[in-house]
């Protein structure tokens, strides 16, 4: 097993375990911290796939900005394990069964797909570098990029208007 395989399995197991811990943690602050670990392992996957720009953006935007926002809101509301509302047992079991059934259906549908020869290139390839992404972003995707700024402006105005009253 090469280094790439070992890193892939390590990051995958870390991501799945942390994702399960996000769902089962009683304390919302612990959930946020586990979710940050999920984002770090997904960024590790991006680096493995040589998508370096997305790895850094994922860390800065998700793990840096969005998760701090979540933490602030949770601390503002003083949520902890004692105030955490719990669904009753049967609803929890039904939810897990529904999620598991979706997993079963998707895996059953995809396991026979003819993808044996398709390899995701790891550790090389230049499309993930910021030079190439920037060229494509500002040549082919410049209109969506500008519309994004309108989206951000409206989101900002919306958040202020909702939060003020």
């Amino acid at each position: 097993m090469g280094t790439t395989q070992i890193l892939f399995w390590f990051l995958s197991i870390l991501a799945l375990f942390s994702a399960i811990m996000v769902v089962v943690s009683k304390n919302p602050v612990h959930s946020v911290l586990w979710l940050i670990l999920v984002f770090f392992s997904i960024s590790g996957h991006y680096i493995l796939l040589n998508a370096q720009f997305l790895a850094i953006v994922n860390l800065i935007v998700y793990a840096g900005a969005i998760m701090v926002l979540f933490l602030f809101v949770i601390m503002l509301m003083n949520l902890n394990a004692d105030t955490e509302p719990q669904k009753n047992k049967w609803l929890k079991i039904a939810g897990v069964v529904a999620g598991g059934a979706l997993l079963l259906v998707l895996v059953a549908a995809l396991k026979d797909a003819d993808l044996k020869n398709q390899i995701a290139q790891t550790g090389q390839g230049e499309i993930g570098l910021i030079h190439n992404l920037g060229m494509a972003l500002f040549k082919d995707y410049v209109i969506p990029f500008e519309i994004t700024s309108v989206l951000f402006l409206s989101a900002m105005v919306g958040a202020v208007v909702i939060g003020k009253k």
Binding site: L16, V22, L102
Partner: peptide
């Protein structure tokens, strides 16, 4: 697919909006 389904199960089993 596994990560997505864990997310779906989380939405269905938790009551905290955050």
């Amino acid at each position: 697919v596994a990560l997505f389904c864990i997310g779906v199960a989380g939405v269905l089993t938790r009551r905290n909006a955050i």
